[in-house]
Amino acid sequence: MQEFILLMIGAALVNNVVLVRFLGLCSFMGVTTKIDTAVGMGMATTFVMTVSSILAWAIEVFLLAPFGLGYLRTITFILVIAAVVQFTEMVIRKVSPSLFQTLGIYLPLITTNCAVLGIPLLNVQSKHNFIESMLYGFASAFGYSLILVIFAGLRERIALNEVPRLFGGPPIGFVTASLLALAFMGFSGISAN
Protein backbone atom coordinates (compact mmCIF):
# COMPACT_ATOMS: atom_id res chain seq x y z
CA MET A 1 0.00 0.00 0.00
CA GLN A 2 2.86 2.38 0.82
CA GLU A 3 4.30 2.04 -2.68
CA PHE A 4 0.94 3.05 -4.18
CA ILE A 5 0.75 6.14 -1.98
CA LEU A 6 4.30 7.15 -2.94
CA LEU A 7 3.53 6.55 -6.62
CA MET A 8 0.46 8.81 -6.39
CA ILE A 9 2.24 11.60 -4.50
CA GLY A 10 5.11 11.41 -6.98
CA ALA A 11 2.76 11.64 -9.98
CA ALA A 12 0.54 14.39 -8.59
CA LEU A 13 3.05 16.70 -6.92
CA VAL A 14 6.71 15.81 -7.48
CA ASN A 15 6.49 15.07 -11.21
CA ASN A 16 3.46 17.24 -11.88
CA VAL A 17 2.26 16.76 -15.43
CA VAL A 18 1.95 20.50 -16.15
CA LEU A 19 4.67 22.20 -14.13
CA VAL A 20 7.41 19.57 -14.32
CA ARG A 21 6.71 17.60 -17.49
CA PHE A 22 5.24 20.61 -19.35
CA LEU A 23 2.36 18.61 -20.86
CA GLY A 24 -1.17 19.94 -21.41
CA LEU A 25 -0.06 23.58 -21.49
CA CYS A 26 -2.65 24.57 -24.10
CA SER A 27 -5.64 23.73 -21.93
CA PHE A 28 -3.70 24.98 -18.88
CA MET A 29 -3.68 28.49 -20.37
CA GLY A 30 -6.99 28.15 -22.23
CA VAL A 31 -9.54 27.03 -19.62
CA THR A 32 -8.15 28.66 -16.49
CA THR A 33 -9.92 31.99 -16.71
CA LYS A 34 -12.60 30.85 -14.22
CA ILE A 35 -12.42 28.35 -11.38
CA ASP A 36 -15.68 26.60 -12.25
CA THR A 37 -14.65 25.84 -15.83
CA ALA A 38 -11.26 24.66 -14.53
CA VAL A 39 -12.98 22.25 -12.12
CA GLY A 40 -15.27 20.92 -14.88
CA MET A 41 -12.39 20.46 -17.28
CA GLY A 42 -10.24 18.92 -14.56
CA MET A 43 -12.83 16.30 -13.61
CA ALA A 44 -13.51 15.36 -17.24
CA THR A 45 -9.78 15.07 -17.96
CA THR A 46 -9.22 12.98 -14.82
CA PHE A 47 -11.91 10.53 -15.90
CA VAL A 48 -10.61 10.22 -19.47
CA MET A 49 -6.93 10.04 -18.43
CA THR A 50 -7.57 7.25 -15.90
CA VAL A 51 -9.69 5.15 -18.26
CA SER A 52 -7.19 5.74 -21.11
CA SER A 53 -4.33 4.58 -18.89
CA ILE A 54 -6.18 1.33 -18.13
CA LEU A 55 -7.06 0.62 -21.77
CA ALA A 56 -3.57 1.56 -22.98
CA TRP A 57 -2.08 -0.88 -20.44
CA ALA A 58 -4.37 -3.65 -21.69
CA ILE A 59 -3.51 -2.97 -25.35
CA GLU A 60 0.22 -2.81 -24.58
CA VAL A 61 0.22 -6.06 -22.57
CA PHE A 62 -2.15 -8.15 -24.69
CA LEU A 63 -1.53 -6.79 -28.21
CA LEU A 64 1.49 -4.56 -28.84
CA ALA A 65 4.14 -6.32 -26.72
CA PRO A 66 3.31 -9.98 -27.60
CA PHE A 67 3.17 -9.30 -31.37
CA GLY A 68 6.15 -6.91 -31.48
CA LEU A 69 4.02 -3.96 -32.60
CA GLY A 70 5.73 -1.36 -30.44
CA TYR A 71 6.21 0.97 -33.43
CA LEU A 72 2.40 1.38 -33.56
CA ARG A 73 2.19 2.43 -29.91
CA THR A 74 1.70 6.20 -30.34
CA ILE A 75 -0.94 5.97 -33.05
CA THR A 76 -2.73 3.17 -31.20
CA PHE A 77 -2.88 5.20 -28.00
CA ILE A 78 -4.21 8.23 -29.93
CA LEU A 79 -7.02 6.02 -31.24
CA VAL A 80 -7.67 4.69 -27.72
CA ILE A 81 -7.97 8.24 -26.33
CA ALA A 82 -10.31 9.35 -29.14
CA ALA A 83 -12.44 6.25 -28.55
CA VAL A 84 -12.57 6.86 -24.78
CA VAL A 85 -13.65 10.48 -25.32
CA GLN A 86 -16.38 9.39 -27.75
CA PHE A 87 -17.46 6.60 -25.39
CA THR A 88 -17.60 8.98 -22.42
CA GLU A 89 -19.67 11.43 -24.44
CA MET A 90 -22.09 8.67 -25.43
CA VAL A 91 -22.38 7.35 -21.87
CA ILE A 92 -22.96 10.81 -20.35
CA ARG A 93 -25.60 11.52 -23.00
CA LYS A 94 -27.29 8.20 -22.31
CA VAL A 95 -27.03 8.45 -18.51
CA SER A 96 -28.40 11.98 -18.41
CA PRO A 97 -29.07 14.30 -21.37
CA SER A 98 -29.16 17.22 -18.92
CA LEU A 99 -25.68 16.42 -17.65
CA PHE A 100 -24.49 16.20 -21.24
CA GLN A 101 -25.90 19.64 -22.02
CA THR A 102 -24.20 21.08 -18.96
CA LEU A 103 -20.81 19.39 -19.36
CA GLY A 104 -20.54 18.27 -22.98
CA ILE A 105 -18.36 21.20 -24.04
CA TYR A 106 -15.31 19.94 -22.14
CA LEU A 107 -15.07 16.52 -23.76
CA PRO A 108 -13.88 17.37 -27.31
CA LEU A 109 -11.15 19.56 -25.80
CA ILE A 110 -9.61 16.55 -24.07
CA THR A 111 -8.88 14.75 -27.36
CA THR A 112 -6.11 17.20 -28.24
CA ASN A 113 -4.63 17.37 -24.75
CA CYS A 114 -1.11 15.94 -25.03
CA ALA A 115 -1.04 15.09 -21.31
CA VAL A 116 -3.69 12.42 -21.96
CA LEU A 117 -1.35 10.78 -24.49
CA GLY A 118 1.80 11.39 -22.45
CA ILE A 119 0.66 9.52 -19.34
CA PRO A 120 -0.04 6.13 -21.05
CA LEU A 121 3.32 6.43 -22.83
CA LEU A 122 5.07 7.13 -19.50
CA ASN A 123 3.25 4.11 -18.03
CA VAL A 124 4.72 1.88 -20.73
CA GLN A 125 8.17 3.41 -20.25
CA SER A 126 8.00 2.78 -16.49
CA LYS A 127 6.73 -0.82 -17.02
CA HIS A 128 3.78 -0.30 -14.66
CA ASN A 129 1.33 -3.15 -13.98
CA PHE A 130 -2.47 -2.72 -14.10
CA ILE A 131 -3.01 -1.12 -10.72
CA GLU A 132 0.09 1.06 -11.00
CA SER A 133 -0.96 2.26 -14.48
CA MET A 134 -4.41 3.19 -13.20
CA LEU A 135 -3.13 4.96 -10.08
CA TYR A 136 -0.42 6.77 -12.04
CA GLY A 137 -3.03 7.99 -14.57
CA PHE A 138 -5.44 8.98 -11.80
CA ALA A 139 -2.81 10.80 -9.72
CA SER A 140 -1.28 12.59 -12.73
CA ALA A 141 -4.74 13.78 -13.75
CA PHE A 142 -5.42 14.88 -10.18
CA GLY A 143 -2.19 16.89 -10.24
CA TYR A 144 -3.23 18.43 -13.56
CA SER A 145 -6.66 19.38 -12.16
CA LEU A 146 -5.07 20.80 -9.00
CA ILE A 147 -2.81 23.08 -11.04
CA LEU A 148 -5.73 24.11 -13.25
CA VAL A 149 -7.80 25.16 -10.22
CA ILE A 150 -4.90 26.94 -8.45
CA PHE A 151 -3.99 28.81 -11.62
CA ALA A 152 -7.61 29.73 -12.32
CA GLY A 153 -7.88 31.18 -8.81
CA LEU A 154 -4.71 33.22 -9.34
CA ARG A 155 -5.95 34.50 -12.70
CA GLU A 156 -9.30 35.51 -11.21
CA ARG A 157 -7.39 37.58 -8.64
CA ILE A 158 -5.07 39.04 -11.28
CA ALA A 159 -8.10 40.09 -13.33
CA LEU A 160 -9.24 42.26 -10.40
CA ASN A 161 -5.90 44.06 -10.14
CA GLU A 162 -4.20 46.69 -12.25
CA VAL A 163 -1.49 45.06 -14.34
CA PRO A 164 0.99 47.19 -16.36
CA ARG A 165 -0.30 47.38 -19.94
CA LEU A 166 2.67 45.50 -21.44
CA PHE A 167 2.12 42.59 -19.06
CA GLY A 168 -1.66 42.39 -19.50
CA GLY A 169 -3.23 39.12 -20.65
CA PRO A 170 -1.03 36.10 -21.49
CA PRO A 171 2.32 37.64 -20.39
CA ILE A 172 1.27 38.01 -16.76
CA GLY A 173 -0.25 34.52 -17.05
CA PHE A 174 3.10 33.06 -18.07
CA VAL A 175 4.92 34.96 -15.30
CA THR A 176 2.43 33.56 -12.78
CA ALA A 177 2.81 30.05 -14.21
CA SER A 178 6.60 30.22 -13.88
CA LEU A 179 6.31 31.33 -10.23
CA LEU A 180 3.90 28.43 -9.61
CA ALA A 181 6.39 26.04 -11.23
CA LEU A 182 9.13 27.37 -8.95
CA ALA A 183 6.88 26.77 -5.94
CA PHE A 184 6.24 23.18 -7.05
CA MET A 185 9.98 22.59 -7.40
CA GLY A 186 9.92 22.51 -3.60
CA PHE A 187 8.24 19.08 -3.80
CA SER A 188 11.20 17.63 -5.70
CA GLY A 189 12.99 16.97 -2.43
CA ILE A 190 10.27 14.56 -1.25
CA SER A 191 11.07 11.62 -3.51
CA ALA A 192 13.66 10.64 -6.07
CA ASN A 193 10.96 8.84 -8.12
Binding site: D36, V39, G40, M43, A44, T46, F47, T50, I92, V95, S96, S98, L99, T102, L103, F138
Partner: peptide, 15 residues
Protein backbone atom coordinates in the same frame (compact mmCIF):
# COMPACT_ATOMS: atom_id res chain seq x y z
CA UNK B 1 -22.94 24.96 -7.66
CA UNK B 2 -25.00 23.09 -10.25
CA UNK B 3 -21.99 22.85 -12.57
CA UNK B 4 -19.80 21.48 -9.79
CA UNK B 5 -22.47 19.02 -8.68
CA UNK B 6 -23.00 17.82 -12.25
CA UNK B 7 -19.24 17.38 -12.77
CA UNK B 8 -18.92 15.40 -9.56
CA UNK B 9 -21.89 13.23 -10.49
CA UNK B 10 -20.83 12.52 -14.06
CA UNK B 11 -17.07 12.06 -13.60
CA UNK B 12 -15.86 12.01 -9.99
CA UNK B 13 -18.31 9.46 -8.57
CA UNK B 14 -17.83 6.73 -11.26
CA UNK B 15 -14.07 7.36 -11.18
Amino acid sequence: RTLLRASALAYALPL
